[in-house]
Every structure is written in structure tokens, then in C-alpha cells.
Design a protein around this nucleic acid. Structure first.
Length: 259
DNA sequence: ATGGTCGCTTAGCGA
């Protein structure tokens, strides 16, 4: 079973690439972020023609997330489009249960800078998320948590740690949340299979970031401990980042075995 | 070189 996450930076612009990627990799589930589209604007027919169904939590201009899935998984249940109890006009969450698998797809707040009001919002958002993960873990042994987290968990996930020291995406406040999820028993699957090497998932459009490999690892797939025996492989799809008119993020893939 | 590029909406914002 293949699961993947991809911040597409406009599903309108990137739909042809998403369709091509689906045909190439045939994932069971693809979580996408930054649709920048309302639910009505998403070309569901094109996805269906490619053999996929989709759950959308869209928003005009900003944010928006979706779960694109193989209908052979059956009808998803317990669909959630908000962190329960957390008021948020921004569309950043889509979660659903597929059989025995609980999947949460997130577009975490960027935060802009540590002195921005958006960073306060990010902290409130992460506080609510951490509380919610505890609840989801208690209800769903087989939990997958994926998306654009806008957190580089350690200095090994940053091309220039000195330049990013204390900056947004790299603060102790953000990293402590990520560390807390690991303490709670979630597994950082990319690091599980790639303990040493850098494996960036995002490169700034500016300053030829990708060509110079000046990246950050901010897109993640975390799974609960119960799924550890089934883990087979995780990797970053750098090829898609090198396509014509790419998203600034690469897809991240996780392969795992059947029950 | 202390900037740079995208996407959205149409001058400026968000990333």
C-alpha cells in the first residue's frame, strides 16, 4: 500500500502533474495541500476519470486540503474538516478512516516570522493539534498523520542551520511539538528509513533553491507504533520537484505492507 | 549581489 503527501501550491495549476503522478505511482491515498481552490472549483471529474475519488476541504486563494483515494478502499468514514473544538476559518485539515486506517492530512500554519501575529496563530494551532493527536491515537491504533507541517524537526533537516537558527520553521517551540509527537509514539517515517542523509522536501522558488539544493524537510508522514511492523520504505520524490513549472514542494511517499 | 519567484488577484499578500 502506497500513501503520499504533496503540497501542490495551487491544484488548478498543478492538476495535470497530479494526474500524471497518480498514473505513475498508483497510490492508495494521496494527501494534497494548498489547493487554493473552493470545493466547487476542484475538477473532480478529471480525478474520477483517472480512477480516483476525493474528499475536499477547499478555500479560495489560500490553504485548502484534500484526500485523493482509490475507491477500492471502500467508502471513507468519520470525515473531519477541523480540529475538534478549535475555531479556524482557514481550511487546513481533512481526516478520514479507510478500513482500519485513520488518515489525517494537514496544512500546518506557516507562521511567517517569529515576531508575526501569524506565529501566535501557529502556536495556538499546534497546541490544538497536539491535543487532538492524543485523542485520535486513543481512538485509532493505525494512525497516519501527514502533510505540510511547516516544521523542520532538527538541524539535519535544514541546508543552512546557522542561517535558520531560531527562525520560523526551526524554533524550539515548533520543534518541541514535533518531538512531543514522537514521544507520544508516532514514527517519523522518512527518518526511519533515512537516519543520516538530508532529505529535503521544500526548496524556495527564489535564488535557484532547488538547483543548489538549498532545502528544508518540512513535509512529513508520521505513523503510529502499531504500523511499524508494516513499514517498507519512505522517500522524497525529487524528480517531481524538477518537472516543468513545479510546486515548490516534492511529494513524500510511504510504502507499507498489508495487515 | 542581504535580493531573488511563484500563485492569486490585479498592487500587494502569502509562502
Amino acid at each position: 500500500m502506497l500513501i503520499a503527501t504533496w503540497n501542490v501550491n495551487s491544484l488548478k495549476v498543478r492538476l495535470p502533474q497530479v494526474l500524471s503522478w497518480l498514473a505513475q505511482w498508483q497510490p492508495s491515498i494521496l494527501g494534497v495541500q494548498e489547493l487554493k481552490q473552493t470545493n466547487d472549483a476542484v475538477d473532480v471529474a478529471a480525478l474520477r476519470a483517472s480512477g480516483y475519488e476525493v474528499l475536499i476541504n477547499g478555500q479560495k486563494t489560500y490553504n485548502g486540503v484534500a484526500l485523493i483515494y482509490d475507491p477500492a478502499l471502500g467508502a471513507p468514514t468519520n470525515i473531519i474538516t477541523d480540529i475538534p473544538g478549535f475555531e479556524d476559518p482557514q481550511r487546513r485539515v481533512i481526516a478520514a478512516t479507510f478500513g482500519t486506517l485513520r488518515v489525517i492530512n494537514l496544512y500546518v500554519v506557516n507562521g511567517e516570522s517569529t515576531t508575526s501575529d501569524k506565529f501566535i496563530y501557529k502556536q495556538r494551532w499546534l497546541d490544538a493539534l497536539t491535543r487532538w493527536i492524543e485523542v485520535e491515537q486513543s481512538q485509532h491504533p493505525n494512525l497516519v498523520l501527514m502533510g505540510d507541517f511547516n516544521i523542520a524537526p532538527t538541524d539535519a533537516d535544514v541546508h543552512d542551520p546557522a542561517a535558520f537558527k531560531g527562525q520560523v520553521l526551526c524554533t524550539d517551540i515548533e520543534r518541541n511539538h514535533f518531538a512531543q509527537w514522537l514521544t507520544m509514539g508516532m514514527i517519523d517515517t522518512l527518518r526511519y528509513f533515512e537516519p543520516e542523509n538530508a532529505c529535503y522536501t521544500w526548496w524556495d522558488y527564489r535564488a535557484a533553491g532547488f538547483r543548489r539544493d538549498r532545502g528544508l524537510r518540512i513535509d512529513h508522514i508520521l505513523v503510529s507504533e502499531a504500523l511499524r511492523p508494516r513499514l517498507l520504505h519512505a522517500e522524497v520524490d525529487r524528480e517531481a520537484r524538477g518537472w516543468e513549472r513545479p510546486s515548490d514542494h516534492a511529494p513524500v511517499r510511504l510504502l507499507f505492507g498489508a495487515d
